[in-house]
Computed example of a mutant assay.
Amino acid sequence: MSTLTVTTKGQVTLRKDVLEHLGVHPGEKIIVSKLPDGRIEVRAARPAGKISDVFGFLRNNDGPSLSIEEMNQIAARGWAGRR
């Protein structure tokens, strides 16, 4: 458990080990949910995608059709928020 200090501006800095635990990197976002009894939940904001977002990656206009393995790799990258 970590103890954090609130600044005069009402800000809190999360320690590096906490950010690593969340899998959050500089520039990424986190979600803070207010829970009962004055508690909060902090979690990494993950990009939400649609299945149609993947279809553009499956096009290969310059050559042969993609293999199943290539399609699986592309789909995995798309759902992980990488393009």
Rank of each mutant, 00 (worst) to 15 (best):
M1R: 11
M1F: 11
M1W: 06
S2L: 13
S2E: 13
S2P: 05
L4C: 13
L4R: 11
L4G: 08
T5Q: 14
T5D: 12
V6Y: 03
V6P: 03
V6G: 08
V6M: 12
T7E: 12
T7N: 10
T7R: 10
T8H: 12
T8E: 15
T8L: 15
K9I: 11
K9W: 08
K9T: 15
G10W: 03
G10C: 08
G10Y: 03
G10R: 05
Q11E: 15
V12R: 02
T13S: 15
T13W: 15
T13N: 14
R15K: 15
K16D: 14
K16T: 13
K16A: 07
D17I: 10
D17V: 11
L22Y: 09
L22V: 04
L22W: 11
G23H: 09
P26R: 06
P26Y: 15
G27V: 08
G27P: 00
E28V: 04
E28P: 01
E28F: 11
K29W: 08
K29E: 10
I30Y: 06
I30V: 14
I30P: 01
I31S: 07
I31Y: 10
I31R: 12
I31W: 11
V32S: 03
V32L: 07
V32E: 03
S33R: 15
S33Q: 13
S33I: 12
L35N: 04
P36S: 13
P36E: 14
G38C: 03
G38L: 01
R39Y: 08
R39A: 13
R39C: 05
R39S: 11
R39E: 15
I40H: 06
I40M: 10
I40W: 11
V42L: 07
V42F: 02
V42N: 01
R43M: 12
A45T: 03
R46Y: 08
P47D: 05
P47N: 01
A48N: 04
A48L: 12
A48Q: 10
K50I: 02
K50F: 14
K50L: 09
K50T: 06
K50V: 05
I51H: 03
I51A: 10
I51N: 04
I51C: 00
S52E: 13
S52R: 07
D53K: 00
D53S: 05
V54K: 02
V54N: 00
V54D: 01
F55A: 09
F55R: 09
F55V: 13
G56H: 04
F57A: 08
L58D: 02
R59P: 00
N60L: 07
N61T: 10
N61Y: 09
D62E: 15
D62V: 09
G63H: 03
P64Y: 00
P64E: 11
P64T: 07
L66G: 05
L66S: 01
S67W: 02
I68Y: 02
E70H: 07
E70N: 06
E70P: 01
M71F: 01
M71E: 03
M71D: 00
M71N: 02
N72G: 10
N72Q: 12
N72D: 06
N72K: 14
Q73V: 05
I74S: 00
I74E: 01
I74P: 02
A75G: 01
A75T: 07
A75M: 06
A75E: 02
A76W: 00
R77A: 09
R77M: 05
R77H: 05
G78E: 05
W79G: 01
W79A: 10
W79M: 11
A80M: 08
R82S: 08
R82H: 07
R82L: 06
R82F: 07
